[in-house]
């Protein structure tokens, strides 16, 4: 079972307490009616589907209830880091410095 660190609980807990919630950092357009059909389709459905480090949303649904973001390697299924919602995606350099 995967262990996931919740940045709000400041604790590392079993995956069973968490729910996956799709790719992170996708902002809802401020005025959807101004978008073309193609732009709206892209917002709704088109994702990067990256092979490697992926920024994604998770929710600590059976814990503190909060949404947060994580960097996870889609090849190895390893979590690189997790961070609070609203914070920018950590740069590889920041991660190296933190190690």
């Amino acid at each position: 079972m995967l262990l996931i660190n919740c940045p709000y609980c400041d604790d590392t807990l079993p995956e069973l307490e968490f729910a996956y919630a799709g790719e992170a950092h996708i902002a809802r357009p401020a005025d959807p009616s101004k978008l073309s059909d193609e732009e709206w389709r892209d917002f709704l459905f088109i994702r990067t589907n990256v092979k490697g480090v992926h920024a994604e949303r998770w929710r600590h649904i059976n814990g503190c209830g909060r949404f947060f973001n994580a960097l996870r390697d889609t090849v190895s299924d390893q979590f690189v880091t997790t961070y609070k919602a609203g914070e920018p995606r950590p740069e590889p350099k920041t991660l190296e410095a933190a190690e």
Binding site: D11, L13, L16, E17, N62, G63, C64, G65
Partner: peptide
């Protein structure tokens, strides 16, 4: 319970799952 129960100290509490029930 999938969590390490030893980490809940006396007097404290935690929301978690028991066989998928919250």
């Amino acid at each position: 319970c999938p969590i390490d129960l030893g980490r809940i100290k006396v007097g404290n509490a935690k929301r978690t799952v028991f066989d998928y029930a919250q």
